[in-house]
């Protein structure tokens, strides 16, 4: 184990880690409930994953293998920066293979490869409060959560259908966790929402600037809000991935020229690479 000189393992001091772990335990005990925690100033800017980093730092050990993705990709600048942060301060092994990782920190996506028991998925959360658009006041939203006073949330969905004929929320789509707490799934596309439901992995959410931690324990029901006659549905594409030919993953649009040319590729880079390898192997 090699960590940066002058700093503790995984940057945070042990006292701080214990404080964060206590918050995590509470979050696990009350699925979907936002636990306030003494978020520390981190050497990365607020809004760039400080909550996720603190959660990861509190749960990671020397034996862990860390994967970091941003927009589903391992090679985006922010993912590289955070992976490098932990490689430097904790000296842990890193990987791009979803199945091989014990801790996965993510921004905006859930990996396409199904997660398994024992894995921890850490989300970076910019704004944890699902009721914030409706009510800017923390004192009031906490009361609404305490009373499960969530009816107004459906007003937004009603408005969507009235105006567009369908629910027009495409990401950060609100969910009800364990039939009790309304939760904001960090801005993942709603395509990923069903993956949260009854997932064998532990899902932890960290919001550094807003100083909140929340969790979805393994095998917890997570339901996306909807109406009986307008059920929740996920995005689908007419195209296949231009690289691996997959049709069941979330696709990014890549503009290839300024005349409307575009291709679609998997947002999850590791998933795409794995499938390409499999296709190649089959051909050989």
């Amino acid at each position: 184990m090699t960590s940066a000189p002058g700093y503790n393992f995984a940057y945070l001091d042990e006292q701080t880690k214990r404080m964060i772990r206590r918050a995590i335990l509470k979050a696990v005990a009350i699925p979907g409930y936002q636990v306030p925690f003494g978020s520390r100033e981190m050497p990365l800017p607020y809004g760039w994953g400080t909550g996720g980093i603190q959660v990861t730092a509190a749960v990671i050990g020397p034996e862990d293998r860390l994967k970091v993705i941003d927009q589903g990709a391992d090679d985006t600048t922010n993912a590289v920066s955070i992976r490098r942060f932990f490689a430097r301060t904790a000296g842990v092994a890193t990987t791009e293979r979803t199945a091989a990782a014990t801790v996965i920190q993510t921004r905006h996506r859930i990996p396409e490869t199904p997660l398994s028991e024992g894995q921890i998925l850490v989300y970076q959360v910019p704004i944890p409060e699902p009721l914030r658009w409706l009510e800017p006041r923390e004192t009031e939203t906490r009361k609404m959560h305490a009373l499960a006073d969530y009816g107004a949330m459906h007003v937004k969905l009603y408005e969507d259908i009235a105006r567009f004929g369908r629910i027009a929320t495409t990401y950060d789509y609100p969910v009800l966790v364990n039939g009790r707490y309304l939760m904001r799934p960090s801005p993942i596309p709603k395509f990923d929402n069903p993956k949260m439901n009854m997932n064998p992995a532990l899902q932890l959410f960290g919001a550094g600037r807003e100083k909140r931690i929340y969790a979805v324990p393994p095998y917890t029901p997570v339901k996306s809000l909807d109406f009986e006659d307008h059920p929740f549905e996920i995005q689908s594409w007419d195209q296949a991935c231009a690289l691996c030919g997959g049709t069941d993953s979330f696709l990014d649009e890549v503009v290839t020229d300024d005349r409307g040319g575009r291709i679609y590729v998997c947002s999850d880079t590791h998933h795409c690479a794995t499938r390409r390898d499999a296709v190649q192997e089959a051909a050989e």
């Binding site: 760039w48 941003d70 927009q71 990401y171 596309p189």
Partner: peptide
């Protein structure tokens, strides 16, 4: 930090909106 985090890629969300 939060204002400038808009520099980070948001293309998954944007893709969803585009679609």
């Amino acid at each position: 930090g939060f204002v400038q985090h808009l520099k980070l890629p948001h293309y998954v969300d944007f893709q969803s909106e585009l679609e």
